[in-house]
């Protein structure tokens, strides 16, 4: 499947941001992935062409990073963190729930093309364990019931909002965000400071603790 001319235009815009063109390769791969739901041969070749690289050079990079998919991903990519912190606090159970619910195993896609599932490593959401991601948008402090509910809503096309504010779109849309294109969602959820982020500040305020600051600042 040929990639659109629009993608080529956007690729060139990304390249222009960097002092050296090749630096744009990772975002470029996200961009071609956003069009096809995977990094296809056509995507590899377009990146190679635009950067003056061989397809081997591009594919060697694309296969190094786990977020670039070699097979088409479903509409949504559900990731369950199974790294010990999340895994032990419930990720293992969530994985069980997810795969039972969807009848697919790791790196597989449901027959209707709706969901792909993936065991993922630590997402830097340990204080929110166990964490799940939908199209890489965070669904913190997940539990099996919420997971089932989320799947049902996604399937029904109902709105699902990440615990970090952004509305969930689909895998391809997120890939555009990862390529650095403005998705208009930057203000979602204000500063995202929930009780977990505020745990220390709240405690400090409640207990009259603060860092002494010179110059009358507080």
């Amino acid at each position: 499947m040929p990639l659109s001319d629009q993608t080529r235009v956007e690729i060139r815009e990304i390249i222009a941001k960097y002092p050296e063109p090749r630096s744009a390769l990772l975002p470029m791969l996200h961009l071609v992935q956003s069009e096809e739901g995977m990094v296809s041969t056509a995507g590899i070749e377009m990146c190679a062409e635009e950067l003056g690289l061989t397809s081997a050079e591009v594919a060697s990079v694309a296969t190094f990073y786990t977020m670039y998919k070699r097979r088409p991903v479903g509409k949504h990519l559900i990731g369950v963190c199974v790294n010990p912190q999340c895994g032990i606090l419930g990720g293992d159970k969530l994985w069980e729930t997810l795969t039972e619910e969807l009848g697919v195993d790791n790196d597989e896609t449901t027959e209707d093309g709706e969901f792909s599932v993936e065991r993922i490593e630590c997402q830097a959401a340990c204080t929110y364990a166990p964490a799940v991601t939908v199209d890489w948008e965070f669904m913190d402090n997940m539990d099996p019931d919420k997971l089932r509910e989320t799947l049902a809503k996604l399937r029904a096309g109902e709105e699902v909002v990440s615990t970090r504010g952004a509305v969930i779109r689909d895998f391809c849309a997120t890939e555009r965000t990862l390529a650095g294109l403005d998705d208009g969602l930057a203000d979602s959820g204000d500063n995202n400071a929930d009780e977990i982020m505020l745990a220390g500040l709240t405690y400090a305020k409640e207990n009259g603790m603060s860092a002494p600051l010179p110059g009358g600042d507080e």
Partner: peptide, 13 residues
């Protein structure tokens, strides 16, 4: 191509 123990030599498509 690939990484870790799966790392292997390959050609482009």
């Amino acid at each position: 191509f690939e990484r870790g123990a799966k790392q292997q030599v390959a050609t482009g498509p």
